[in-house]
Design a protein around this nucleic acid. Structure first.
Lengths: 220, 220
DNA sequence: AGGATGAATATTGTATACAATTAACTCAAG
DNA sequence: CTTGAGTTAATTGTATACAATATTCATCCT
């Protein structure tokens, strides 16, 4: 188990909401669970801190990031500023293969929802957005979008109003259609609307996340 | 000397072009120079790697990042995609204080050029762009722009065609005027032009950076 | 001479010991 | 009871020792 794979594992657990925002991540606890030295654990935690997935406070340790309402606002504001433009560019460059990939994403997402795998559905839903940025052939911005999507996942874990409903499928279908027909302006508009909807369906007042037992949430 | 301040110090040295892209950064050499343990050095290097200022290859150590022509293209492509939009938003929100800050930036930059402090001039020129993103009240994107500007500094160090001329002052003046008069579309256009000019005045073919002695380039 | 081989050296990767700091607890005073 | 100081335990920060890997250099064979 290397530092990178540990970070990957923790990241997956955070995104799947197996460990709640705010959960303390003590170094020797993690080093016990994964049977590595604290050196490795620290390295992984620092990497996750750079991705804003965990908070590190000097002499006070690490915990799963717990975005404030302000953070949530800022992240979605940024996405609304960037992603419609990327979607518009993607519509112009879209190749048949790209469309096929997106279609597959939607199908997988649908399957995950049916299987009741909320975490997987959310991950795929996010990847849909990253894939669009990649289609626009903007590798650096695509990476930035990926980081925003990751942070959004945490935010949704905290502030999503209706945990049951998964209402975005329609929006993704509409985006796919606009992309396939190379309609840049329509794609731009749809993406703006989609992100605005997402943002406005957050309840930035709710709080309170239960802290779970790490050994249970993480494998072994 | 903490890890953060070491990273800051190295970052400044890189941006001031006191250590050239490609220069090897051996851990015990740095730990000697700064009189800290390798633990601290490693932490600082990892932080800089996240900022893409240094390259780390497993078992092969760290070196100052040496962006490829492809990297240079991607970075400026990203800036051209983002910054005009930010500038347009900034033009709408610009407050008198903001304008004053930008005016000061330009003055300082001019002074640095006259003083022959090329590194300082470049830094201030970059801050001008970051400040605009901040004016648009987009903290997250402002941070992203900051990272792009930092990478641009490295790229300019490698690929800038005419090391003597400092031709951007005019562009910044024009941008300032457009911002002050709240002319969004004009600001957007000027920023696009400015970045396009910058990009096209790079010579992506030149290579070859001399490796310098670290102890000389870094203090003590 | 040119290239392969393998020791010797240099450099990075990881674990662990110890120091510094923070959090938890005890117990007495009000 | 509650509050606070002082002590103990838990946790993170840093240095260092050792292991693993890469690089260098001398040597040998063709």
């Amino acid at each position: 188990m290397t530092a990178a794979s540990l970070a990957q594992d923790l990241s997956a657990a955070i995104h799947a909401h197996r460990i709640a925002p705010g959960t303390k991540l003590r170094e020797d606890e993690l080093s016990d669970i994964y049977s590595v030295s604290r050196t490795i654990v620290r390295s992984a935690l620092q990497a996750l801190a750079h991705q804003k997935l965990v908070d590190i406070q000097r002499n006070r340790g690490a915990s799963v990031a717990s975005p404030t309402p302000r953070d949530a606002h800022d992240v979605f504001e940024a996405r609304i500023m960037i992603e419609p433009q990327m979607a518009q560019a993607a519509a112009q460059k879209a190749m048949p293969d790209d469309i096929a990939i997106l279609r597959q994403h939607i199908a997988d997402e649908h399957a995950a929802v049916l299987a009741g795998d909320r975490g997987q559905a959310l991950a795929l839903s996010g990847q849909f957005h990253v894939e669009i940025a990649r289609m626009a052939d903007q590798s650096i911005i695509a990476e930035f979008v990926r980081s925003l999507v990751e942070r959004s996942s945490l935010i949704i874990a905290l502030y999503w109003r209706k945990p049951s409903t998964l209402c975005e499928s329609d929006a993704h279908h509409a985006l796919l259609a606009a992309l396939a027909s190379h309609d840049g302006p329509a794609t731009h508009k749809l993406m703006t609307q989609h992100l605005t909807d997402l943002h406005s369906s957050l309840d930035l007042h709710m709080q309170g996340s239960e802290i779970v037992n790490l050994k249970d949430a993480l494998r072994r």
